[in-house]
Design a protein around this nucleic acid. Structure first.
Length: 292
DNA sequence: GGCCAGGCGCGTA
DNA sequence: TACGCGCATGGC
């Protein structure tokens, strides 16, 4: 194998790489001395934003035509087109103004689903720790340049289905351990087939994912949005719920039914992007404007 | 030391 | 359909 550092540069517009990689959709990116280091598929990758209008990428070994990275970063998506699909209300304007350039990534579906099974009632830092442990223990080592921290691929369905609950608990999964193991086994048995889910309409895709242990509506929506490309999926976690209540229903108590209807009708065909802006906005304005 | 974290599953009203 | 609770673990 020809182990060389290969490099490419992608022209981008309205792309905030740092905000995107740290926005709670992917959990394997670390800021090192020479840029953001992570793993995509079996490849170690380093990314750097050059000024505002380019992303420089390096990998170690065969990079091929780099389409795998264009897909992951979604560099061809026009942010203008995304923002044009948003509602024009004040909360959305404020959310976009707070972080223009925030993007959605397109991750591998199994890794994305498994990552979010690990995420319930955990802070982002802890999710990163759990996933790092899983990769180190059950993944395969990646080729990395000399002097760079070791890196591992995300564990396969097959490998995690063979992991015992005790082994998973050692990765700090806690009560999520049987969920992750159970989901891996069900996928291995083809009781649920992720390749088929990709071609379903949103509601059916969600229903199918919810048949997996540890996967409810929120985690299903995260996987559908970040791992399958369903742009209308709108994951509601505690932060997004907080944003919706404070920004759209102040001093009211919308019932769950009403809230779901609002979400499905208000945010348009790219609601998932809108959700990501609201998530980032409410999390970063904590402590400001007297809001708790 | 108490509260909270990119929730889910299950029991109950 | 809508709550309430337990479930591990760690950051603040």
């Amino acid at each position: 194998m020809d182990n060389d550092l290969e490099r490419a540069v992608f022209a981008v517009k309205d792309y905030d790489l740092a905000a995107t990689l740290t926005s709670g959709q992917a959990f394997r990116w670390r800021l090192a001395a020479n840029g953001w280091e992570g793993v995509i598929g079996q490849r170690w990758v380093r990314l750097r934003q050059q000024r505002g209008d380019a992303i420089e990428a390096e990998t170690f070994g065969e990079a091929g035509d780099w389409q795998w990275l264009r897909d992951y970063l979604q560099v061809r998506v026009s942010l203008d087109a995304v923002l044009a699909a948003f509602p024009t209300d004040e909360p959305m304007k404020a959310a976009v103004a707070s972080c223009r350039g925030l993007r959605l990534l397109r991750q591998e579906s199994w890794e994305c689903l498994a990552s979010f099974i690990c995420s319930s009632t955990k802070q982002i830092v802890q999710i990163q720790q759990i996933i790092a442990l899983l990769c180190e223990r059950f993944g395969e080592p990646c080729a990395v340049p000399p002097g760079v921290a070791p890196a591992w691929s995300f564990p396969t369905i097959e490998r995690l289905s063979r992991a015992s609950e005790a082994e998973l608990r050692q990765c700090k999964l806690g009560f999520r351990a049987p969920y992750l193991a159970g989901t891996a086994r069900k996928l291995l048995d083809r009781a649920v087939d992720l390749n088929r889910v990709a071609n379903f309409p949103l509601a059916e895709a969600r229903e199918e994912l919810c048949r997996l242990p540890g996967v409810g509506r929120k985690i299903a929506d995260c996987a559908l949005l970040f791992g399958f490309g369903f742009e209308k999926a709108f994951p509601v976690d505690v932060w997004v719920m907080r944003a919706l209540r404070q920004l759209y229903f102040p001093r009211r108590r919308p019932k769950p039914r009403r809230l779901r209807h609002f979400i499905e009708t208000h945010f348009g065909p790219r609601a998932g992007y809108a959700q990501q802006y609201l998530f980032h906005y409410i999390r970063t304005r904590r402590g400001q404007e007297g809001l708790s």
